[in-house]
Simulated scan of single mutants.
Amino acid sequence: MTSQTTPLAVPAAPVRAAGLAELMSAWRVPLVILALCLLPWMLPSQALAVNVLIYGTLAVGYNLLFGYTGLLSFGHAAFFGTGAYVTGIAIGQFGLPWFAAMALGVLAGGVLAVVIGALSIRTRGIYFSMVTLALAQLVYYVALQASGWTGGENGLRGFTVAAIDLPGWSIDILDPVNKYYVLMVFAALALWLVSRVLNSPFGAAIEAIRENETRARACGYDVERTKLLSFALSGLICALAGTLSALHLAIVPLDSLHYQTSGMIVMMTLLGGAGSFFGPFVGALAFLLMEDVVSLWTPHWQIFVGAVFVLFVLFLPKGIWGTALAWRSGR
């Protein structure tokens, strides 16, 4: 009798998908930067590309707290607006150079994040969200009343950075293409920082807290300190996005501190895919592109964007990029 052994079929597609996922994870920062380099030439205008860059960076900072640490904050507009206001005040009223003003803006946003984080991480769940919202609205009210510094309801005006002066080189950032690539350098630094954080033991700690805070505490993690540090890093990156917005617009509207801006950050993160590295930029692109296109048809574009957001929450909870990754890996 002749026995034949039938070889087992090897599922090549999942193996290839896993290999592609590992490759994308290892090269995620260069791949995102490459995509951002091409963005101004793929969108209807360079101004829209700059907005995607700024709000994508803002969503990246928020995603570190919400997507990777599992903390839903409704107050991140406070850090975005603080970075923008401090940068504008430093340039317009104190005459500081742009790089010093940006450094002060990031530092101020980081200090504010430490303060708000220290007060809010003592609570959990919806209480945490409400405390961050209340504290952020307090910052909004302070900016509204301090009209001598902030311009009050009219926002902060009277500062413009026309050129970035480097040793032996001056870059005209009134040109939208030049402005985009100058700001992209700072967005790339933020992406590199987030990638380093996620690849570190601290990154594993915040993901452990997201999955099961009680188990993380039982494993010996200092949960409160870890959450506070994550909150502070998130605030630093959001403040950086605010400084980029100030350089871009040469004004700081009071709405940059409003809770509607915080809600927009949450929507962008969820639309792209919370907990995914490239998702925040995809979400910012989708949100701003919908706003840009639909607002040409109707002034009530928020209704359309809100309906799309509800559909995503119900049927695509992983967002655009998260769903694409799940589909590619066969899950």
Rank of each mutant, 00 (worst) to 15 (best):
Y68G: 10
G67I: 06
V32W: 13
A49E: 08
V50W: 05
I33G: 05
T69P: 01
L39H: 11
M42P: 02
L31A: 14
L65R: 07
L34H: 05
W41A: 06
Y62W: 13
L31M: 15
C37H: 13
L31I: 15
Y62H: 09
L58W: 10
L39T: 14
A59M: 02
L71H: 06
A47R: 15
Y68E: 03
P40G: 08
V29I: 12
W27T: 15
V32N: 06
A59K: 01
A26G: 13
I33W: 12
G61E: 03
P44A: 07
V52N: 05
L58A: 12
G61W: 04
L43P: 11
T69M: 06
F66K: 00
L64R: 02
Y68H: 13
G67L: 00
L43H: 08
F66V: 10
G61C: 09
L34M: 11
C37F: 15
Q46A: 15
W41T: 09
A35F: 15
N51T: 09
P44H: 04
I33S: 08
L39M: 15
L72F: 13
G67Q: 02
V29E: 10
A49D: 04
I54C: 04
Y68I: 05
L65G: 04
G70L: 09
W41S: 00
L38K: 05
V50L: 11
L72P: 00
I54K: 09
C37Y: 12
V60L: 09
L65Q: 01
P40N: 04
W41P: 03
F66R: 04
C37G: 13
V60T: 14
A26T: 15
P44F: 04
A47G: 14
R28T: 12
C37R: 10
T57K: 01
